[in-house]
Nucleic acid binder design. Structure first.
Lengths: 158, 158
DNA sequence: TATTGTTATACTCTATAACTATA
DNA sequence: TATAGTTATAGAGTATAACAATA
């Protein structure tokens, strides 16, 4: 392992700050407000996931992608259904399972939400050159993947 | 504003994934385990902040940097004090305030924690060239700053 | 009168356990 | 017997309100 370079040490506060901005800055809540539906964070996450996936998902699949336990998804899916933003269909292949599908109202809200967030991101990067953008997107993806891969091996080390 | 480029749209899931890895992957908990103290997340945050700042901080200052409300800091500072990891000193300049200072035991735990996390980061980026590292650090910092700046102006837009 | 920090309380997000229906 | 989802319950993290001491 050896020493950790000073640069890496300097980047740690940045990562923590970014984590804060992403999770605790009210970004989601404010974008949701602009989108005009008073949904809470987990419900928004479900809605956006369904929109970006572009197909109905099973409850367990949603839970796995969100990395949360099943009951969490059940509750918020019910909330979304009460508001008419998703539909729950029987899975013809497996009668134990339920497919969760966006309604057109749900898709509309997801689109407004995504538009707002992407607009903010776009404006934040207004002064960026095309090259810097490309580079950042590429390195961000690589970093996220490498970090997730490293963390996934920790438990098997003992 | 205009259209959001497809690239930006593609990067959104990456950001969400990174937020998940940073906040919900158990990274903090597992590093804390390795560091040998059974502290919870907010307590670790306080400890690390004091260590990286390298000087005693007032309760209000800690709360501001963590972007949390005051009582949250009070509670976790008390927990840290019970364990002998911080000391609470009177602020001679302002008798209303308290300074929170690391003990040597607290500094030791913070160092072990930081060493573990930085080690994981370093290993995750094992295959990275020096140039890519530098570029990533620079762009990450810029992105975080630009995004925080953009979000800070949202409320004043109405 | 405003500010620092504390105490008490409540809300959001998420996990675990126990259960039902199907496989 | 194992799996998909649900219901009920509990815990962690954080906010708000009310208050004390000092400015």
């Amino acid at each position: 392992m050896g020493d950790t370079e000073p640069d890496l040490r300097a980047v740690l506060p940045r990562l923590m700050q970014l984590g804060n901005v992403l999770n605790r800055s009210g970004l989601v809540e404010r974008a949701m407000e602009q989108a005009g539906a008073g949904l809470d964070r987990p419900a928004v996450t479900v809605l956006v996931m369904l929109r970006m996936t572009e197909k109905p998902l099973r409850v367990g699949e949603i839970a796995a992608r969100m990395q949360v336990a099943g009951p969490h998804v059940t509750r918020h899916t019910h909330e979304l259904e009460r508001r008419g933003l998703v539909r729950r269909l029987p899975d013809t292949d497996d009668k134990r399972a339920r497919l969760v599908e966006l309604t057109s109202a749900g898709a509309e809200i997801a689109d407004r939400y995504l538009g707002t967030v992407l607009g903010w991101l776009s404006e934040a990067m207004n002064g960026w050159s095309a090259g810097d953008r490309q580079t950042f997107y590429r390195l961000l993806q690589r970093f996220t993947e490498d970090l997730a891969a490293r963390l996934s091996t920790i438990d098997t080390e003992a």
